[in-house]
């Protein structure tokens, strides 16, 4: 009898023989007919990773990406049939591959691609109307909670993660410089956009994510923090959805 455990084990590891009990229409051993399933599984999972990580695929080139994806899919099959979530652990996996360890920024670029995909599928939320900030006195503003949209994602990196991503994905983008970059990802309607955050911006937004009031978030961002540019990014990107006055 051919169990599904046998069938699955040999699907993902070609060093296993074709499971017994599988035949063609005349009772002969199935042989390479079984390879159709091996190929379907590997190709479909690799295609899913390539769709999810176009910048990584471009940075590594076809052969290296196929190697990395092939190793990953044999160790990490999807945990559910929702392929939109597949590959969430691929960024961490990339850091374990010896030949790729010299490319320090690779995992963070992959984290950025995961964040973009999560943002794309996140729940819809109304875009915050900046007029609601007008007329608030300072006390009311300092104690208010700015609510981030479900599509908002924050990525802090010691690498020029957004510059590398843009250089890879957007023709004509400038060559990255060796600087740390913090990035906000959000969508106003359907397409997530990525925004470079100024100094202190990521601390400010991280505090909002932790449900701290506006005043506490300002403190978290430090004395030299200039709110204007970060607030402007928050408003333009669709990352804010509401304000709760206390």
């Amino acid at each position: 009898m051919t169990t599904q455990t046998d069938f699955r084990t040999a699907l993902l590891d070609a060093s296993y023989p074709v499971p017994a009990g599988l035949v063609d229409g005349r009772g002969q051993a199935a042989g390479r007919r079984y390879d159709v399933y091996r190929n379907n599984v590997a190709v479909s999972l690799q295609d899913a990773l390539e769709t999810a990580f176009p910048a990584i695929a471009s940075l590594l080139g076809p052969d290296n990406f196929a190697m990395a994806a092939g190793l990953y899919l044999r160790q990490h099959q999807p945990g559910s049939p929702l392929m939109m979530h597949y590959g969430a652990s691929f960024p961490a996996f990339l850091t374990t591959l010896e030949p790729l360890k010299s490319i320090g920024y690779l995992a963070d670029v992959a984290h950025l691609e995961v964040a973009v995909r999560q943002s794309y599928h996140a729940a819809d939320a109304p875009v915050f109307d900046p007029a609601r900030l007008q007329g608030l006195d300072e006390d009311a503003l300092m104690s208010a909670h700015l609510i981030l949209a479900p599509s908002a994602r924050l990525l802090r990196s010691p690498w020029p993660v957004l510059s590398v991503y843009s250089f890879t994905m957007v023709p004509g983008s400038p060559k990255p410089s060796a600087i740390a970059e913090d990035v906000l990802i959000a969508r106003a309607e359907y397409d997530p956009t990525q925004h470079l955050l100024p100094q202190g911006g990521a601390d400010f937004i991280a505090a909002l994510q932790q449900n701290q009031p506006f005043g506490a978030a300002l403190n978290a961002a430090g004395d030299s923090f200039d709110l204007g540019p970060t607030l402007s990014v928050l408003l333009q990107s669709g990352a804010l959805t509401d304000i709760v006055l206390t």
Binding site: Q4, F7, L11, N40, V41, S44, A48, P78, G79, P81
Partner: peptide, 17 residues
């Protein structure tokens, strides 16, 4: 068909006896 075994989804439609 089957596609999940032991909580692993294989993203293909696999055969059964």
């Amino acid at each position: 068909a089957w596609s999940t075994h032991d909580s692993h989804f294989l993203n293909d439609l696999l055969p059964l006896p």
